[in-house]
């Protein structure tokens, strides 16, 4: 099995469990924490599972810009 992919999968599962532990909590800091962790997981899948790390810089910038814009708009609304 590929080591990088396996480590990425373990990290993604651990981050998912950590995020779920915050389900009973409420507040703006929890919301920010949840969205930032989701952003890291998004990048993990895009760059490792989808092999975006091997792609041209253009595609990396597009996905990264999308995520930054999405998270920024949510934080502005908050």
């Amino acid at each position: 099995m590929d080591r990088t992919i396996t480590i990425t999968w373990i990290l993604l599962v651990v981050l998912t469990i950590i995020t779920s532990l915050f389900s009973g909590m409420n507040g703006i800091n929890v919301s920010i924490f949840v969205i930032v962790l989701a952003g890291f997981k998004f990048l993990g899948v895009a760059f490792q599972f989808m092999e975006l790390k091997k792609a041209h810089l253009f595609w990396k910038i597009i996905i990264f810009a999308y995520l930054i814009l999405f998270v920024s708009i949510i934080l502005i609304i908050l």
């Binding site: 992919i5 999968w9 599962v13 998912t16 995020t19 779920s20 599972f49 989808m50």
Partner: peptide, 24 residues
């Protein structure tokens, strides 16, 4: 049901993990 949502996330991540291994 957060537990359902969490388990479903793990199912999809695990599925994606095996898909990535398949492509390798």
């Amino acid at each position: 049901n957060v537990t359902c949502g969490m388990i479903n996330t793990v199912f999809l991540l695990t599925s994606g993990f095996f898909m990535a291994l398949s492509v390798k």
